[in-house]
């Protein structure tokens, strides 16, 4: 039918149409505050971070260790409560050099988000975090990295207690 329709509905507006008041629109801001419970497994994970340790969790039945921890194994549906301390060292699975913020503002120095496969887990079982202490042209997939922690007194039980991951070797 597309070839039989001469003109399609849908009227394109420009920013100028709005700014100049050529068309009317209502602007409002929604306030949405939440307090999320960390839950059983992530609660332990956050306790671990506060203590300067990354905790994984093991499913004996599936013979796998994963991070972030979870209360149940999504594959066999058994409880998963054997927590395993991980060394905080891993391998860059992938990374990006990101020049825009979450709300699309341009930044000059890129953030380097990465998926990091942590030693002691059963691949693929990485976590997302940032890389730091490395020049942008030196970042590589396969690079070995370790967690850089905030000082103990500044830690609060959050993923940001790890400031970033940096190369094991000077690059």
């Amino acid at each position: 039918m597309t070839q039989r329709i001469a003109s399609y509905p849908g009227t394109a507006l420009s920013e100028e149409d709005i700014e100049r008041g050529r068309v009317l629109s209502i602007h409002d801001r929604l306030r949405a505050d939440y307090a999320w419970d960390a839950g059983l497994a992530i609660g332990r994970y956050l306790d671990g971070l506060k203590a300067g340790q990354i905790l994984g969790v093991r499913c004996e039945r599936c013979d796998r260790t994963v991070v972030p921890p979870r209360a149940f194994c999504e594959q066999c549906f058994a409880p998963m409560d054997a927590f395993v301390p991980l060394a905080g060292v891993g391998t860059v699975n992938t990374f990006s050099l990101c020049y825009v913020t979450w709300d699309v503002k341009r930044i000059a120095e890129p953030l380097i988000p990465s998926v990091i496969d942590l030693d002691g887990t059963s691949p693929p079982a990485g976590i997302m975090h940032l890389l730091g202490g490395v020049a942008t042209d030196r970042v590589r997939i396969g690079m070995r990295v370790r967690a850089v922690w905030k000082p103990a007194r500044a830690r609060e039980g959050a993923i940001t207690d790890i400031r970033y991951f940096k190369p094991l070797r000077r690059g």
């Binding site: 999320w36 960390a38 992530i42 994970y45 956050l46 972030p68 990101c98 825009v100 913020t101 979450w102 699309v104 988000p113 976590i127 997302m128 975090h129 940032l130 959050a158 993923i159 940001t160």
Partner: peptide, 9 residues
């Protein structure tokens, strides 16, 4: 809890 504090995009 585990990702949003990193301000992902």
């Amino acid at each position: 809890t585990t990702e949003r504090p990193l301000k992902p995009n």
